[in-house]
Design a protein around this nucleic acid. Structure first.
Lengths: 246, 246
DNA sequence: CAATGCTGTCTCGGATGCGAGACGCTGGCG
DNA sequence: CGCCAGCGTCTCGCATCCGAGACAGCATTG
């Protein structure tokens, strides 16, 4: 087994904690969150500030994210094949259907929004990039779950307790989820209507390439009249899949 | 003076190095880049992988950025007032003028692209988010430099050597730059035509709020006929400035 | 003005993380 | 096939980093 390297681990945890906060926070809060002694926290924060990963705002005695953290995040997008290759097809999809689209990956039983392309005139970023949502409530998540082996879905949703809900709608038990996913498989795409945000609906199709579990989705206002989006979404998912396989 | 916390510093340097690489790299390259002993590098990488900041690809023996690094980057965007507040005005600007727009901040004598809104039908991301370019060549950079005190501009561009060029165009000396910036100040906006990418031109206006040095720009293909963009760009810059001041 | 709570700095001794180095493994190449 | 370069793992002893705690500055409160 490998050595712990606690200082490095703490630094990374501080970064993660800070990134989850909407605004800069006092040092004591960081120390509590990361479970680190006071003095070590200050030493650590100072070192991180030297590297521009955190910024100290002396006037209001808080610490926040630094520019280097931001650059690192975008380094990931450049390096990650999925984000790199999906960008252009996703932009084309938005131009074709005139609605906002996004790309998500599965992270445990949640989906993480990795790319978003806003359609002109729409309020930007309904579901913001970087946000996580329960997979079983989103069209994107359902599209991914539908192509996973049944055993893996069972492991992610062991019982009724695993089923949170935002609006009361959506599956409430493993049985309901199983039925939903088998419908999805039969149709070849996933849907969601008002289960994430009332008044908005989505369709999604999975991107399959080896170990990568992702999906493409388009979201629109329910009251808008949208044409047939399904084919465009499936085509885009297919194209991203093809690109990932070279 | 503060204690070094070398393990944390090394971890951050590894992150920074990895984020600058277009693809995952072998461990030895990382060890060289960060100037760390081999065995320590492996311990560090393992610890970072445990926290999902890096990923090990055993099949091709390389290490790349992990999902946590990405999340941290987007935490910054959420936390940073500039990125948070500029998002919506920038989207409106793109809808108004029908061309791609972006927001940059000054970092030394370079500009860093922080936000980008693509216009429909345009190839996405001419100048990608996260990219740095020499400030004196871009409209965005010139807009910022034009509102800085002369002494600060002199400090950033001490002599002829500071003036790199991509296409041969652009200022080559402190004198030329000074004239360019005084023109910019008189006009109230900055321009650039083919000096970053041949065939593309931009206009930019500065965002001024205390210590923040940023600007908004619109870029278009020279051969396209675009109407009067200047007013829209200046209005947007003004609105972001107002939002930053509450 | 005194009291209080909180932030940031500094010191110092002991535990412990760190780096040198050896070893086994694998895949590429002649 | 045999060789070799480079990758990943492991051990071990010493130097060094870490954490307890004391202290000083600065608000805010009564």
């Amino acid at each position: 087994m490998s050595r712990p390297v606690p200082a490095a681990t703490s630094a990374l945890r501080v970064l993660r904690f800070l990134s989850s906060q909407p605004v800069p926070v006092p040092a004591t809060r960081i120390a509590d969150a990361v479970d680190l002694p006071r003095s070590s926290t200050y030493h650590l924060l100072t070192a991180m500030a030297d590297e521009d990963f955190v910024v100290h705002y002396p006037e209001d005695r808080t610490w926040g994210m630094g520019i280097a953290a931001w650059e690192v995040g975008h380094g990931f997008s450049r390096q990650e094949p999925l984000a790199r290759l999906a960008r252009i097809p996703l932009a084309r999809l938005v131009d074709t259907v005139g609605q906002s689209a996004h790309l998500v990956v599965l992270l445990g039983s949640e989906v993480l929004y990795v790319l978003e392309e806003r359609a002109p005139g729409r309020p930007p970023l309904v579901t913001d990039v970087g946000v996580r949502l329960p997979a079983h409530l989103t069209a994107s998540g359902r599209a991914i779950l539908a192509v996973l082996p049944a055993a893996q879905v069972r492991a992610l949703y062991p019982g009724k307790d695993a089923f949170t809900s935002r609006t009361g709608a959506g599956p409430q038990s493993p049985t309901e989820l199983r039925r939903l996913l088998s419908d999805t498989r039969r149709r070849g795409f996933a849907t969601e209507d008002g289960e994430v945000t009332p008044g908005f609906a989505s369709v999604a199709a999975a991107v399959e390439a080896g170990t990568i579990h992702a999906s493409v989705a388009v979201t629109w206002r329910t009251r808008d009249d949208v044409g047939n989006l399904v084919d465009a979404v499936r085509t885009t998912a297919g194209e991203i899949t093809r690109r990932l396989r070279h």
